[in-house]
Design a protein around this nucleic acid. Structure first.
Lengths: 377, 377
DNA sequence: TTGTGACATGGAACCGGTTCCCGACGGAGG
DNA sequence: CCTCCGTCGGGAACCGGTTCCATGTCACAA
């Protein structure tokens, strides 16, 4: 058996039996070195309960000498808290998701929490496994779901384990979520173009059938349609579904802009990446932006300034830290999991006007703009 | 106190005291329901040791009835294994790192391992905290360091805890690493242009002073210089440091390409993102690619095909899964941590030739090309 | 018949902390 | 002088599993 006295004061690994894992100092060793009991050592190190200053100092010194660090496993076992949050995410290598993850990570780490990452693939089997096998094992205190629509079963599963959940990127039935108003932002983007006088406006957005989209595509399309019909500009043929990235926007725009006769004067892109693709395609086709084609995006992507893209900026990283804060507050709250206030926190967006938008050429100018100029004295 | 008999057969949470955390069924409950001892239940569920088929079936059924899941904390406490790997990474929202992370995550999860993510900021204090506070707490079995040069102290710290480490993105003193040969790939990229006949070649690469670059910038520059001096094309003024992203390449190229007299005929970009920025800038300046300017990149970024970029492709996601495999093998090996074979696994790259490279216009044609054509009969 | 070994199971120690409970001590107040 | 209370510290239970060890059964070979 291990003789603990061999350990005291010795920082090196002692592997008397190479087969067995090496022992590192435990709180008992610290206690012995400091000449106190385990319970006092625990109190001294965790700061809970009464410990005299002199004793605390001795214990802290002993812990430092031994290079002691608590075993979070042992602590979790008894406290029931892991100080670890699970993050479920469909993509890592997409701008929005990477930014969100970044924000969450920063917020969690600065509160002393770990982040355990689960990428959820569209594969239902893999998804079930994550929920049944991983998230459930008392490994995480809470779960943040990014851009994923949890099923009622999944929510129940986590909630019955007393784990708070926060959604990000769209509403989830019955749990607090952080998101922007995707319908509204698309409506505003469209209205921006309408107010500039555009009439032939197209929307290049994400595929509605794509899994894991959390209805963002559908909502932005819906906002577009809302604005268009409010301006009396309904049409069957003003939406085109493209992959939600730069090449998607590029390929889509090449097709949409091919025929000069049917070319729109403005495009509402489903996201900034699509918008950038559109701009690249337009430049390649020799179409001047914005004089021949206005483009507006949604996101506030880091490429927007370089391409002079007018866009409605959301701040995914801030959304991430907000979600993390909600989780941390919930965990800190005494009412742990009880009545998680049905908060749907809608984050603000802001408009960054750049060079990709202007009024259309006079022959394309719409009624609204004409009226506006007529009304002016 | 909790009366366990109340729990048996009841799937719902029982919170007799709302203040205290809710109990979920433990292995003792399963054992009691199945009419066996804890030890037998443990053996039945984990598959270790002798259990008759009939008994195993009863236990499994009981566990299913109770919705039992093991507490990984309790299991880790006694086995000393967490089935969790820590990943340390400097950026989440950059293509290379996101791809690597993706690869690691897939590999780990399919082996039943969790991934705990630590973003290391350049802030030394934060970095120390991650190592002293987080990584050390027996929370992870191993560490993968991506694009980060660990100090000797950090390596010792982890190793003295018996935790295997694997580096990715460059060599780390004394630990196995996965990477491509950054010197060589830059040399090959440069030689590609030289062999096409270019003489006025510039390198737009990353800032050498940038922290967290893991000497990738320096190595690629060095490969470029190697190729240039081998071809007798040394020059003081053929390198420009730019931010290692698309806007960085764009801004850098705008300056480099501004003066038509001193314009290079070809550019070796430090990475594909810089290359894309260069192409965008060139197009904007009306410079034809490749007839007036050849561009070659390094990475195999997803935007490369769209921009017709000739590039040397590395596969970060595959590098990530390779790193994960090494870790998993090491953990599975009996010699746990002992003599981690000093493997430096260099991953292959492959050349994808697209439209961004060609021979220079005749007046710019270099000696090598001339010589080559002269040597031909 | 008895020894042997594979199989099956229960009891109990153990992992490394936290926390409850209790006792001790010392100064203040009645 | 006796309580009482605030402070301090130790002993022991406990969290929820895993694993060692002992016990027992049964089949089979000697």
């Amino acid at each position: 058996m291990w003789n603990r006295f061999h350990i005291v004061g010795n920082l090196d690994m002692l592997c008397t039996e190479p087969q067995r894992r090496c022992r590192v100092s435990a709180i008992g060793d610290v206690a012995r070195l400091a000449g106190v009991s385990k319970s006092t050592a625990s109190r001294a190190l965790s700061g809970r309960g009464y410990v005299s200053d002199a004793t605390r100092e001795r214990v802290v010194q002993a812990a430092a000498d031994l290079g002691f660090v608590v075993s979070s496993n042992a602590a979790s076992l008894v406290t029931g808290q892991t100080r670890n949050v699970g993050v479920v995410i469909p993509f890592i290598n997409r701008w929005f998701f990477a930014e969100v993850l970044d924000g969450i990570e920063s917020a969690l780490i600065s509160s002393g929490y770990d982040l355990t990452l689960y990428r959820l693939s569209p594969d239902a089997e893999q998804r079930r496994r994550v929920f049944d096998y991983f998230l459930v094992r008392k490994r995480v205190d809470a779960v943040i779901a990014i851009g994923i629509e949890l099923t009622a079963r999944e929510v129940d599963q986590l909630r019955s384990l007393g784990k708070p959940i926060v959604g990000l990127g769209g509403p989830i039935e019955g749990i607090p979520t952080v998101n922007i108003d995707d319908v509204d932002v698309a409506r505003m983007a469209t209205e921006l173009l309408i107010n500039l006088g555009h009439r032939k406006i197209m929307h290049l957005g994400g595929d509605l059938d794509e899994q894991m989209d959390f209805r963002v595509h559908a909502q932005r399309l819906s906002g577009f349609r809302l604005a268009m019909s409010a301006a009396g500009l309904d049409s069957d043929d003003n939406f085109r579904a493209v992959p939600f990235d730069i090449p998607g926007g590029y390929e889509g725009a090449l097709k949409v802009l091919a025929d000069p006769r049917q070319r729109p004067t403005a495009i509402v892109a489903g996201c900034d990446e699509v918008a950038v693709g559109v701009i690249v395609a337009a430049r390649q086709l020799g179409i001047q932006i914005p004089s021949q084609l206005s483009v507006v995006g949604i996101d506030g992507h880091s490429l927007a300034p370089m391409f002079g893209l007018t866009t409605f900026e959301q701040y995914p990283s801030r959304q991430g830290s907000t979600a993390a804060s909600i989780i941390l507050e919930t965990l800190a709250g005494t009412d742990q999991g009880e009545a998680p206030r049905e908060l749907r926190r809608t984050m603000p967006v802001s408009l960054a006007v750049r060079g990709s938008t202007t009024a259309p050429a006079s022959e394309d100018r719409g009624t609204k703009s004409r009226r506006a100029s007529r009304e002016r004295p």
